[in-house]
């Protein structure tokens, strides 16, 4: 990674060559994960804290497994069982953890920009594991890795991102990454869930018609409806959302070509994605999860690599 890259806060800050280096390193780590001994000693001198201020299953387990495969020492922190409940500030918590000689912080937080704030105040390397509605860079990287694995290259690949664009950090990170790597991006969802200024700034195409998006794309990355981030009703009901935007087998059967289905998880079955599509032959959802470990190994390996003086 370029020496300027000290943290992974978002895809926005990365150059094309940084992304390529992460993805090519991840490919080598994926091979490591097929070996009888799936562990390398690269990070045995590195201690990492997983700081999760928001719930997570996949991302957290994936990071922890990646750290263990790299031989790093790992400590885990959940806000719900910690002194954050007693009112300790984020900065105080992290400073206390760092005084125990921790080198890297993997952080998820419900506030957008929390890892950026931390990066300005502490000397450790920071990996953003999702901040509010801003970015989820490792998810975009593993999505890209999975697409490259399937299609060979991102250049010219048509990717439809369907669903709750407004509240999705996965969508934002994916849009940044895909645009930087030369893919074509179209977002699709109810008008209330697609912020107009955002898609204009990122120069991605927009459609409010799911059939049109599916007909156009090679890959549909289907997003979860994030009810926990919606302070007001943005569509009338989950049932109506499913009827208008849900990816169903009937919708896929109408297409002239078969398309690849992705989802960052957790899936709301029967809302944005029907079960027979999620579990169907064109779904690479579990490949995404598998690739997540290799991609996160690459990110932490590369961030630990340069002289961090």
């Amino acid at each position: 990674m370029k020496s300027a890259v000290q943290h992974l806060l978002g895809i926005k800050d990365l150059h094309q060559e940084d992304i390529s280096l992460i993805l090519s390193t991840a490919k080598q780590f994926k091979e490591v994960l097929q070996r009888p001994v799936k562990k390398v000693p690269s990070l045995r001198d590195v201690t990492i804290v997983n700081l999760f201020y928001e719930n997570s299953t996949r991302t957290r387990m994936s990071f922890e497994l990646a750290q263990k495969r790299l031989s790093a020492d790992v400590i885990n922190f959940s806000a719900s069982t910690s002194s954050a409940k007693k009112g300790e500030t984020l900065l105080d918590t992290v400073r206390n953890i760092l005084s125990m000689k921790v080198d890297m912080v993997v952080m998820r937080h419900s506030a957008s920009g929390a890892p950026h704030f931390l990066a300005q105040h502490i000397p450790a390397a920071i990996v953003n594991a999702g901040d509010g509605i801003n970015e989820h860079p490792t998810q975009a990287l593993l999505d890209a890795f999975s697409m490259i694995e399937k299609f060979g290259d991102l250049k010219g690949l048509k990717v439809a991102i369907i669903g709750d664009i407004m509240h999705s950090r996965v969508a934002l990170s994916n849009m940044y990454l895909l645009k930087k790597m030369g893919a074509k991006v179209k977002v699709c969802g109810p008008p209330t869930l697609i912020p107009k200024h955002l898609v204009e700034a990122l120069q991605v195409e927009v459609t409010y018609n799911v059939e049109e998006a599916l007909q156009w794309c090679d890959v549909a990355n289907v997003l979860r409806i994030q009810l926990e981030r919606q302070n007001q009703p943005l569509f009338s009901s989950l049932r109506e959302y499913n009827l208008a935007y849900g990816i169903t087998r009937a919708r896929l059967e109408k297409l002239q070509q078969s398309i690849t289905i992705m989802h960052p998880g957790p899936i709301n079955r029967g809302v944005e994605l029907d079960s027979d599509v999620a579990d169907g032959p064109h779904s690479i959802i579990l490949d995404q999860v598998e690739n997540g470990v290799a991609v996160r190994m690459a990110v932490m390996f590369l961030l630990s690599n340069p002289n961090r003086s």
């Binding site: 990674m1 280096l21 090519s24 390193t25 080598q28 780590f29 490591v32 390398v40 000693p41 690269s42 001198d45 390996f301 590369l302 630990s304 690599n305 340069p306 002289n307």
Partner: peptide, 13 residues
């Protein structure tokens, strides 16, 4: 991934 000079410089795998 097994080098002993892994922190000294960036090695591409």
């Amino acid at each position: 991934f097994y080098r002993d000079d892994i922190r000294k410089e960036l090695h591409v795998a």
